[in-house]
């Protein structure tokens, strides 16, 4: 064989750099999400910042992108009782991307599962609000998450439990886009499709950015809706910051009630904080300066 012989598969040589990414124009994800934030969305984000200030740290970008999805679930979709959090007939919500916990803590506090003042102790030694949500510690949290790829299998088990017990509880699992790299997510998706778990809804916080950079460069997911469809789900795409759109999708009967649903929420990482939107360096901050905090307050004023 000569060095010049072309590859039968016409593959580029191994030492060639990957193709350049498309030019960056505005926050990643902004092409699919342009809904304005209303007063309630700003209020919930201010609660997130209250906890960030209390703990002096946190996953900022990851907590801002799923605020509307969680808000709509708790405001308009799910059945639950803050004064009876273990009520057996409730709908279940699992935040599989546990690092986005500040969004969940903000909504749970707002709904009265625990006092808002607890947010000031976020991540402190004696706090019940840690950097990832824990079952048995935080009232209203259905499963301890933080290690990724655990929420959907647990949600499948809860949906099967409801079926065995004759309950009509729905189960909602919110996953990160980077989290979809975990194989266990797809094991659970196969299983949910097989069991035709119409009561199960997976929401994907598709903010297009993972810790290391754009999802499209680190581990591309497209065609994402087609993947979920292929695993037996009804797949729906929404503007993940548009509460009207989210409400419409999450309260509507699924296209096929014998299939689980995947709601792909197109979001912007860091949404609502102009200087953090679509910027990977705001995925997580282990330390927040006074000027960082002043900027966060100013952005949400």
């Amino acid at each position: 064989m000569t060095a010049a012989s072309p590859s039968p598969l016409d593959l580029p040589p191994l030492d060639q750099a990957p193709p350049d990414l498309p030019p960056f124009e505005g926050p990643i994800g902004s092409d699919r999400s342009n809904a304005a934030l209303d007063a309630r969305s700003l209020h919930l984000r201010r609660l997130v910042v209250r906890a960030l200030e209390g703990g002096g740290r946190g996953h900022i970008g990851s907590s801002m992108s799923p605020v509307e999805a969680i808000r709509v679930l708790y405001d308009d979709v799910m059945r639950y009782r803050p004064d009876d959090p273990r009520w057996v007939g409730r709908d279940r919500f699992i935040l599989s991307k546990g690092h986005g916990c500040l969004a969940l803590y903000a909504v749970l506090a707002d709904k009265g599962f625990f006092p808002e003042a607890a947010l000031d102790d976020f991540c402190r030694f004696d706090s019940f609000l840690g950097g990832h949500p824990e079952y048995g510690k935080v009232t209203g949290v259905e499963a301890s998450t933080g290690a990724l790829g655990h929420g959907l299998p647990i949600g499948v088990g809860m949906a099967l439990a409801a079926r065995m017990q004759g309950r009509d509880s729905r189960v909602f699992v919110l996953l990160g886009d980077g989290e979809l790299g975990e194989g266990s997510v797809w094991e659970a998706a196969l299983c949910a499709g097989k069991h035709r778990l119409g009561s199960l809804t997976a929401l994907i916080d598709y903010n297009k950015l993972q810790s290391a950079g754009p999802v499209s460069a680190i581990q591309p997911l497209e065609p994402l809706a087609a993947k979920w469809e292929a695993f037996g789900f009804n797949a729906v795409e929404v503007d993940g910051h548009d509460v009207v759109d989210l409400r419409r999708v999450l309260t509507a009967a699924p296209a096929d009630p014998s299939r689980p649903t995947a709601v792909i929420c197109h979001t912007i990482k860091g949404r609502g904080v102009d200087f953090a939107e679509g910027r990977a360096e705001w995925h997580h901050k282990a330390k927040l300066s006074l000027s960082d905090l002043a900027g966060l307050h100013r952005a949400l004023a």
Binding site: V88, P153, I154, G155, G157, M158, A159, A188
Partner: peptide, 12 residues
């Protein structure tokens, strides 16, 4: 998935 699913059932 089997372990996680069992956990979900046990939680209920």
């Amino acid at each position: 998935n089997v372990i996680g699913m069992a956990a979900g059932m046990a939680l209920d």
